[in-house]
Amino acid sequence: MKNTFLLLIIGLILNSCSSNIVRLKKGGSIIVVKRIEVTDTLSTNVIGKVVNRFEGFALPNAEVRLENSQEVYTAKCDSKGAFEFANIPKGKYRIMTSFIGYSNSTDSLDIKAAEKIQIKVKLYTVY
C-alpha cells in the first residue's frame, strides 16, 4: 500500500512538471509555458527566452515584466534572448514582453510554490 501511494505521488509530480501550455495571443505572438521541475523551496524560479516567431533567432535586450497587485519584476534579455526571475512568490501574475519593432505580448501566469517554470515567448515583427 505504501509503495503504491509513493508511486502515485511521484507520478503526479512528474506529470505536473512536464505539462506544456501553448497560447497563440491576439496579434500573433506565442507564449509557451513549461513546468520543468519541483524544487525544495517555497519560491519559484522563472527562466525563459524571447525569440523571433518565424525565424527563431534570439531577441537580445527584449524587456520582460512579471507583475501582480503587490510586486513588479523586470528583466532584460541577454545576448541569447534569455531572462530569469529568481525567488518569485506563488500567486497569479501577468507576464508582459516587449521589443522595439515587434509585437508586445501579455499573458497570465499562475505560479505555484516550489517549482521551476520555463517560458518561451515568440514575438513577430510589426510592419
Rank of each mutant, 00 (worst) to 15 (best):
N87V: 01
S108W: 07
A86C: 00
K80T: 09
I119D: 04
N61R: 13
L8Q: 11
N68M: 09
Y127I: 14
Y127T: 13
A114L: 10
A82G: 00
K92R: 11
T4E: 15
Y124R: 14
A75K: 06
F83C: 02
L109E: 03
K92C: 06
E71T: 13
S79I: 10
N52P: 02
S69L: 13
G101N: 03
I31K: 04
S19P: 00
T39I: 13
T4Y: 10
K26T: 14
S16D: 12
G48I: 07
I13Y: 07
K112C: 12
K34A: 12
L59Q: 01
L42P: 02
K25Y: 04
S105V: 05
D110A: 12
F5R: 15
V72P: 00
A86G: 00
R23P: 00
Q70F: 10
G48A: 08
V51G: 02
K120A: 15
V72F: 02
C77V: 08
I10D: 03
S79W: 03
V33S: 09
V46F: 09
G56I: 04
I9E: 04
Y102Q: 04
G81M: 03
I30Q: 12
T39C: 09
K49L: 11
K112I: 09
E63M: 14
F57V: 13
A86H: 00
I117A: 07
E71F: 07
Y93S: 05
V50E: 03
K120V: 15
G91A: 01
